[in-house]
Design a protein around this nucleic acid. Sequence first.
DNA 1: TTGTAAGCGTTATCAA
DNA 2: TTGATAACGCTTACAA
Lengths: 346, 346
Amino acid sequence: MASVTLSDVAREAGVSLATASRAINGSANRTVRPDLQQRVLAAAARLGYSPDANAQAMARGRTSTLGLIVHDIADPYFSSIAAGVTTAAEAAGLMVTLASTGHRPEKELAFIDVLQSQRARAIVIAGGRQDAEEANERLRAALATYRSRGGTVAVIGQPILDVHTVAIDNVGGAAELARALHGRGYREFAVLTGPAPHLTARERTEGFTTALAGLGVEVPADRVVASEFTRDGGYEAMTELISRQADHRRRDGLGSLAVFAVNDVMAMGAMAATRDAGMRVGEDVGIAGFDDIVTLRDVTPGLSTVAVPLVDAGVRATRMALDSDGDAVVEQLDGAVVLRDSTPGP
Amino acid sequence: MASVTLSDVAREAGVSLATASRAINGSANRTVRPDLQQRVLAAAARLGYSPDANAQAMARGRTSTLGLIVHDIADPYFSSIAAGVTTAAEAAGLMVTLASTGHRPEKELAFIDVLQSQRARAIVIAGGRQDAEEANERLRAALATYRSRGGTVAVIGQPILDVHTVAIDNVGGAAELARALHGRGYREFAVLTGPAPHLTARERTEGFTTALAGLGVEVPADRVVASEFTRDGGYEAMTELISRQADHRRRDGLGSLAVFAVNDVMAMGAMAATRDAGMRVGEDVGIAGFDDIVTLRDVTPGLSTVAVPLVDAGVRATRMALDSDGDAVVEQLDGAVVLRDSTPGP
DNA sequence: TTGTAAGCGTTATCAA
DNA sequence: TTGATAACGCTTACAA
């Protein structure tokens, strides 16, 4: 690591350290004489000088790092958000430090500590919150400390951490989906919901069932199946649902039933389970998801879903974290129902 | 940013700066008396001390940062690799700085500079190389400089940058796929290949056609369609292919034709184009891809493809970058053919 | 406009 | 075992 330092450059250019510094980054203190500036730049190039960002961070008292915490970067939901965050961060001249928790909530705290240590300028946390008050309280405390030290924060998810939040309208989107499916003629519904404490799953489920109730349709309790918030969760929940239904209606399949899986990846699992049970998606049973994952837009039958602008969510969260420093602001992001052939109507 | 410093902790604990430092991280210089150690730790906790990673980096002369450069983090190919990289990095006690180039090769160079400035310990570059010698030469130079300054590098892609490389066996995988499709009875083939300079696309195409040649089957030039390496590229190429074929064989569709799209995402585009042209995937034409993207494993008909262990590629590349410091090592990663219903046989 | 010198928060060397 | 103190590479008052 025998790096070339700014002193080396200064010496090579025959100027003082201060002048070299000013020439290379044009600091607040205005100008350096053009010819000197050139000399310094030339010397830097000749020596292959690379400024030490850590030293700069120390001297300046601030870094150009933004932290991004996701549950699982391989999940298309989070990777889309990450794309938005990296884009917006780059536009702001920041590099992003990526932390993937692997769905372990305690890692969130640990990563906040690390980002705190790195003196990251801002932290973006992506991913719905859990209904787990002690965990949330710890998170709130950690973020409050981070903010008190000058960092800024934005969360994509539920606005319960007292920080800037991009809140996806899960309730509204699910409700609209419910009405749209009802509009296509479905009168029987089921929900493959996530784990009970998962707020996003819960909001989507409630939005869906409440909207149906408003239309005079009830979703019986045995048609609300809990599971993991994953592809396998969707598969298992659908399998379970099918076996529960088998009793009543063995021969005619699930006929006029529309199944709402609370995210697209679960919906894909549900589709697979449907097929493995010998039924056809769309014809024997309708299936809808939530998110409109871009990679899944070409599946057949086309998956009905609620499109969420995930990349945009990442961009907005980053901007919020960077721009506004005051009280916690909540920005709502609406989804848009997209009806495709997985729910053609009964 | 009025942070608590180690001096504050030392004062609070009534010990020297040096002792505080040793107590908190147990440096090479062995022990600190247990009671002092406790006092320091307690003081640190009381004050909410958070070590300044930048200062540590300066003093220690090394960081705990690993840089990851991808073309597009929203692409499932890269997000899977990123998952492997973050996992392996975390295991090594490193944080990863994520850089997404948006497919602009010049950004790769710029990011290497930034990572160099950050004094990142290692850099992992994911994504196939282009046949563009000046660009590659610049990259080689940048990486050589980075390495000469003490950094280590690993690339996932073609081993042409004189650094450690995880090379995916595109030729072999595509060849095996060709033989497997031939084994299912196909005798006519087409290839939706990527842009000409894209080495991964080229290797897959060549592996495929060469293997077929070995079986006595030739792929006519007008059945090799170039396009972007994306979903839309696949869609357009397939549309083009269909229109080219339309002349000969209007009524019987593409019958016994198997189409190899050089990656899964392109294959999804090709499937969409097939359907939009009123044909059925599997029955009217076979379609296969490459990569076995996890999110696409449940599409119907199931997409025949070559499974590439992408997460593992990320893990290995990270380990290579971290472990071996010497000459460029090339580790080959084999794919495995997975035949599904998108190529049932003619 | 340029230079001198004082930090920035740690680690690590060297004495004590 | 502990404590001064000199780096680490840079920025930025403050002087010149």
